[in-house]
Every structure is written in structure tokens, then in C-alpha cells.
Amino acid sequence: MDKFSLKGRVAVVTGGARGCGMAFAQGLAEAGASVALLDMLDPVIPTAELSSQYGVTIRYYKTDVTSLQSLQASFDAIKSDFNGQLDILVACAGVNKNVHFLDTTEKDFDGLFNVNARGVYFTAQLAAKAMIENGTKVGSIILVASIASHMAIRSQRSSAYCGTKGAVRAMVPGIAAEMNKYGIRVNSISPGYVKTEMTAPFPDLVEGWKDEIMNGRVAEPDDIKGCCVFLAGDASRYCTGADYRVDGGVTMW
């Protein structure tokens, strides 16, 4: 079980203020990692409360992942605050927009790709550079894709969103191959339908998802964080370049 421990490690989680990102951050903290939360929104649970609950350092950095300047400033601050250490990245920041393919504008398309694909790519790049600089031997980069990279989302008009998540999943093997010589593993997680603050205003939509899912229920955030903890630590030391679906079987149903 020691292989699942992240004690003494430092993680960055983008989109970590709420939803899946917060769940991933809590899982890492439960396993012993200190965590830097990067988000444009304030955390739904204060970082002081999280730090006290899990007995690790958790800090928040307001960050716009579409801005390299903002990302660099946050990584510089993390380097200072955590004595140059960085072992884990979970790139979870993402947005969606329910818009029909025929009505999608250039602004819609660029907005989605800037956050979901470009932001993820350059966040991973900055994290990799920091890991190489500090010489970590346990580097793990986890990009958050989606079941939307595997299938159409029948209940929503989300072709552009599916494209962004497909881009995330597709970039994983290439980044993994190039980072392998540095001892940095790179994988992705594709969550299924999850109850979060973002889905709370749409109870009918969430209820309808149940019929699409093999096990007949929508995931709670607690259901998806175990895969993240597994990929972050030594239990997955032979895993790289792969995507892991945490979807209740929806993509196989």
C-alpha cells in the first residue's frame, strides 16, 4: 500500500477550485501530497480548511490557463512557495458550451480550444520544465480528457467540446514519448458524467444521464479521484501514454 502514498510530494491541480478538479485535489491530499490549486474561481472549500482537514499544505493561485503570462506567474510563485519542488500535475481546467455544430462561431470554437486544449498543453509544458529543473524521480503528468473524446454526448450539442477533449487525449502519447527520458510519466483520465457544481442547476439533464450509463447512476466526485491517486504515485510506475476511462461503463454501453 506504500505505493499509493504521495507523502512528501507536491502537486499542481488546474481547475482545482471546484468540481472534478477539487475532487482530484482532495484525493491527492488524502494520499499525503501538498497541493497548489490553480483556477480563475475561488475554491468552494477554503484552502485553510482543506489544509487542516488533510494535514498538508494547500494553496490557491488565481490563474488564467489561456494566458502564458498568468500560468508562468503561478508556476513561479509555486516554485517559491514549495521550495522548487513539483512532482505531480493534474491539468483539469476546462469549459463547455452547449451550441449546435451549425451555429458554432469562431469565437465559440477558439474559446473552447484556448482553455481545454491550448491551456492544457502549455500547463503540461511548464510543469514538465519545473519537474526537470528540480530533478524529481517520480514525475507524473495527468491530463483530464473526457468521455467526449470517445463518444458523442447525446444530451448536449458539443461537437467543438468533443474536439477539444479529443485533442487532449491525442497529445498524451506524444508528450509521454518525449518526457520518458526524464522519468516523467504522462497519462490522461476521461471522466464520465459527474455531479458537480456545474451540473447542479440542471437536475433533469443529470437524471437523464442515468439511462446512458451501464451501472445506472451518475458519478459523485468521490468516485473519480481514486484513478488520479493511482496515476500520480508509484503504483502506476509502469503506466504511461495511456487514457483511463472512469465512466461507469457509459462508453461501452
Rank of each mutant, 00 (worst) to 15 (best):
G139E: 07
P173K: 03
V194M: 00
S140R: 03
G16Q: 06
V35M: 02
K195I: 14
M214P: 01
M252K: 14
C239W: 15
C239R: 09
G192H: 02
A128I: 11
W209P: 00
Q85G: 08
A93D: 04
T105N: 03
D64V: 09
A170W: 07
F113E: 07
V229N: 02
A145R: 11
Y60C: 05
F230T: 09
A200G: 03
E178V: 00
A160P: 02
A200E: 14
R245P: 09
A91N: 10
I224C: 07
G15S: 05
G19P: 05
P201I: 03
L112R: 11
D103F: 04
F24T: 05
S188P: 10
A242I: 13
A242S: 14
P191G: 04
N83G: 15
E106P: 02
I88D: 03
A128P: 12
A145E: 06
A11M: 08
V115R: 08
I78Q: 01
T47D: 05
T123H: 03
M252Q: 14
R237H: 14
A219K: 04
K129Q: 15
I189S: 02
Y238A: 10
G15R: 05
I224N: 14
V186Q: 06
K195M: 13
T196D: 07
T199S: 14
D243M: 14
L6I: 07
E212W: 12
K79L: 00
P46M: 11
R59M: 13
M22A: 10
F101V: 15
R245E: 10
D247G: 05
V218N: 04
G55F: 08
V56T: 11
V250H: 01
E212V: 06
G94R: 13
C228K: 08
K195D: 02
D211I: 00
W209S: 02
T251A: 10
D223A: 06
F109K: 09
L89T: 07
A200P: 05
A17I: 05
G174T: 05
A232D: 09
S67A: 04
K7D: 15
F230N: 03
L231E: 07
S155Q: 15
T57H: 01
L28M: 07
L205V: 06
K225T: 08
G192W: 06
E49Y: 01
E30D: 12
D222K: 14
A242P: 08
V218C: 11
D247L: 08
L126T: 08
V12C: 02
V44T: 14
A29V: 02
C239D: 11
D223V: 03
Y60W: 15
K79W: 11
L68F: 06
E220K: 12
K137C: 03
A33H: 01
V13W: 13
R185S: 07
N98K: 12
P221A: 02
E106R: 13
R18V: 00
